[in-house]
């Protein structure tokens, strides 16, 4: 039985203010999306950056949901850096639709850059922190 997976989704942002839509699917060997972590190349870029997310047709985050509410600084321990979903979100090959929006001009970011979204997938529904 495979219990854990950290599935990575990379999104390329080419220009300031760009809003990128992406569609992927979760690994079908895992039943539940337990948590999420979003990684940006510079923590100053968190201000104003937003991520919308819909999994299996279920809206998880509105398009205006700020990334700074989903992530943390580099100094945070690995075991605490994920944002845990309170509700049950089905994985198992679910379609993940998202929109990442760069705030533009707030910070002199180096373009292009990659955003990494990590989905923590599990099989055991009882697995809670």
């Amino acid at each position: 039985m495979k219990n854990h997976k950290f599935q990575q989704i990379r999104i390329r942002i080419n220009t300031s203010g760009e809003s990128v839509r992406f569609t992927v699917e979760t690994d079908k060997l895992y039943a539940i999306v337990k948590a999420i972590h979003v990684s940006l190349p510079d923590s100053r870029m968190l201000v104003g950056t937003s991520l919308g997310l819909k999994i299996n047709g279920q809206e998880v985050f509105d398009d205006a949901h700020e990334v700074r509410l989903l992530t943390c600084g580099n100094q945070v321990a690995p075991n605490k850096k994920f944002f845990h979903f309170e509700e049950r979100i089905e994985a198992g090959g679910s379609t993940v639709e998202g929109r990442f929006t760069d705030p533009g001009n707030l910070y002199k970011a180096k373009y292009p850059y990659d955003v990494k979204v990590y989905l923590w997938l599990v099989n055991d529904p009882q697995h809670k922190r």
Partner: peptide
């Protein structure tokens, strides 16, 4: 199983906690 970003910390903070997995 694992994809991760590796960062650099200039200061030594608390003892890091392991990410709990079950493999």
């Amino acid at each position: 199983y694992i994809n991760d970003v590796i960062g650099f910390q200039k200061d030594i903070g608390d003892i890091p906690e392991y990410l709990d997995v079950d493999i």
